[in-house]
Design a protein around this nucleic acid. Structure first.
Lengths: 192, 192
DNA sequence: CGACGAGGTTAATGATCGTTAACCTTTCTC
DNA sequence: GAGAAAGGTTAACGATCATTAACCTCGTCG
């Protein structure tokens, strides 16, 4: 029976190593050693080194989109949807810093089919945000809305790479409020 | 006599290629071929492949800082300084998209001394922004101000990677206004 | 004219890397 | 208890890459 633990260990270790040194900066031997096994044993769990990266990036793209769609569905109006999306993305980025770094930096090292898949998922995720943004600000055309959303991702995704000198909770609040200000989302209405 | 043209051609070509495929994704042979020469001829102009990257990243870090300091010196108050800084950084990022991509992505492929130098320059540049931000918003402590500035860089640096579907002028305005909103900088006072 | 240096060339070197081969244990199953 | 399969191991292969060596060809200058 295939033990799923090793696979998950490999994926988690690879996320850390790829984030620290880049996909091309980590050899199969390095990755194996960091998992307590050595080199070619990885091929008992993944067909190639690229496949490790592909599974990593596809799964997080799927998750970002799926939870995002759920948040939008359960929200109350466009402004509220964008607040929920910002909260979700901020929390994810801070909880999974290595994944964010790898997705930003090493996405071009994917095999072509996985790259297309990730691109499709990311476009859908951007469109999810952009749709809400355009109902809030109808003067934005669609390319501008997409660019604004991508810029917001840049803001939110920037701090995993830095932000070591400030605890997570205030950092999350800072990033979320900056993102909402950048998007022009008004402060939440008080209760009642 | 040493012709400086080849050096500059190599640097410019390297910026494009590194941006498109990553530092490790471009071989010395590729880079030479794109310059009309072949492979080892590069070593007549640079001592190593890393040295090409180092000269590229150090010089842009120096330029960002130098012009930034100049803009702050000739500005009128913190809000005005931040508006000038945002304008400068936005224009630079849009005019030199490949350099921004390489600086974001391939920073860790630098040799150690160049990496330290770039780090120092970037820290000074961030502090330049953070100082102005803290006089505008004294409730921010220094780590939070640094994080806010870094997040703003993430916003401004994000769109070189995307933003192909929107012309430069509106993109610049969009990014600049989003950055100012994220930083909490008020709209410029009208004349008189 | 002669030599020299700048800027090319191709061939060779040594290291590293992803991947495969061949083989060995342990464990679960019929 | 035979045997297959899961999950390791080490050794080897082939490709690629950065870098060096050895050599050539000019324009320049003394």
């Amino acid at each position: 029976m295939t033990e799923p633990r090793r696979r998950e260990q490999i994926l988690a270790t690879a996320a850390d190593l790829f984030a620290a040194r880049g996909f091309h900066g980590v050899s199969v031997s390095d990755l194996g050693a960091a998992c307590g096994i050595s080199g070619p044993a990885l091929y008992k769990h993944f067909p190639s080194k690229q496949a490790v990266l592909a599974e990593m990036l596809v799964s997080i793209s799927e998750r970002l989109l799926a939870v995002g769609q759920e948040r939008v569905a359960t929200s109350d109006g466009a402004a509220d949807a964008l607040r929920d999306l910002v909260d979700w993305h901020t929390e994810f980025a801070l909880t999974h810093r290595p994944l964010i770094i790898v997705q930003d930096r090493d996405w071009e090292s994917l095999p072509e089919d996985a790259r297309d898949q990730v691109r499709r998922l990311q476009r859908a995720y951007i469109s999810l945000w952009a749709g809400q943004l355009r109902t809030l600000q109808p003067d934005l055309d669609q390319p501008a809305a997409h660019a604004a959303v991508q810029a917001t991702f840049g803001l939110l995704n920037s701090t995993p790479r830095a932000g070591q000198d400030i605890p997570d909770a205030p950092l999350r609040d800072l990033l979320a409020s900056m993102a909402l200000a950048a998007l022009g989302v008004p402060a939440p209405a008080p209760l009642g």
